[in-house]
Nucleic acid binder design. Structure first.
Length: 306
DNA sequence: AAGCGCGTCAACCGCTGTTTA
DNA sequence: GTAAACAGCGGTTGACGCGCT
């Protein structure tokens, strides 16, 4: 049963790539495109395993990579995304066009960590360093960020949600049956209700302020979902039941979208997802351009070919 | 000039969820 | 239904370059 072995691991090169190997990989992908990493090395004449080829292409050879020279805006976006997502480098990279998860991870460890420390902030919790450890531990788990650790689904603090609502056009509801707070996005302008084909614009271009007249109750709430990022922004007044899944699995955030149980289905279906770029105040940034609306659902797109 | 320490980053490793035979 | 490989992720390692002594 099962598949046949992917490659002859005994006869593969390791370590730094040579220019010739790079060129072979580039030439091959230019002609045949990405994917099928298993058969790629053999067909491209490379003595590398497919995994190594994929990594080399994604992290180094892809033509759309920026490489180096992080801007101040990117710095701040990374910090904010990290405060929400934790060490989900691939998700963070998905919001930064031209950046790879590996590059961001390295940049975080070499630059941003230090930057936060000089600001007196804990790089992991994003809370002040002088905060009492016990308090910090308790509040970090309960209030600081989307917590994927220990397999728990993410949850946000009331203060985080209030903060996000201040920055965006959110309105909160309390679902008493589920004992969970649900965020509902409401576009500012009435015409945005009449323009359902442009929901993404309604979100991405909305300003951070909401006036009384904007709160028009006769209009239905428009639910936004985030396709490939689990921004199930509900908060548990007590933590969710932990799922026995591996916390660090990169695709778990996505797969959980389809792994919801009937018990929490309603809550999940109602949970609003948002454009993170807008959420963290980068509506006008380049990062926001990766947002895309599909079938009425709000989606984030990873950079090309990632 | 040599030795050392430190920072950077490409690449590897090991793990998990998904896919496929 | 099961087992094995694939794909992709986060964590870690080690080579390299640079600055300081």
């Amino acid at each position: 049963m099962g598949r046949s072995p992917c490659c002859e691991k005994a006869h593969t090169n390791k370590g730094a790539w040579t220019k010739e190997e790079d060129q072979r990989l580039i030439d091959y992908i230019r002609i045949h495109g990405e994917g099928c990493w298993r058969s790629l090395p053999k067909q491209a004449g490379l003595l590398r395993c497919g995994k190594s080829c994929r990594l080399r292409w994604i992290n180094y050879l892809r033509p759309d990579l920026k490489r180096g020279n992080f801007t101040e805006e990117e710095d701040e976006l990374i910090i904010k995304l990290h405060s929400l997502l934790g060490n989900k480098w691939s998700l963070i990279a998905g919001r930064l066009p031209g950046r790879t998860d590996n590059e961001i991870k390295n940049y975080w460890n070499t630059h941003i960590k230090r930057k936060l420390l000089t600001r007196g902030l804990d790089p992991q919790t994003h809370r002040p360093l002088n905060e009492a450890p016990a308090t910090a531990t308790a509040t970090a788990a309960a209030t600081s960020r989307l917590d994927f650790r220990n397999g728990s689904p993410p949850f946000l603090s009331v203060e985080k949600i209030n903060s996000l609502m201040d920055q965006t056009n959110f309105k909160n509801n309390t679902n008493s049956t589920n004992n969970k707070k649900i965020l509902l996005f409401k576009p500012k302008k009435e015409e945005e209700y009449n323009n359902n084909n442009n929901l993404e614009e309604a979100n991405c271009t909305s300003s951070g302020t909401t006036t009384e007249e904007d709160q028009q109750p006769q209009k239905p709430e428009i639910m936004y979902k985030c396709g490939d990022l689990n921004l199930d922004l509900s908060i548990g007044l007590e933590p969710f039941q932990s799922e026995p899944t591996r916390a660090s699995s990169g695709n778990s955030a996505e797969s959980k979208l389809t792994q919801r149980t009937p018990n929490n289905h309603d809550m999940f279906a109602q949970a609003a997802a948002v454009c993170l770029c807008c959420q963290v105040g980068f509506q006008s940034s380049e990062a926001c351009r990766s947002c895309q609306c599909t079938n009425g659902f709000y989606r984030f797109h990873r950079p090309l070919n990632s």
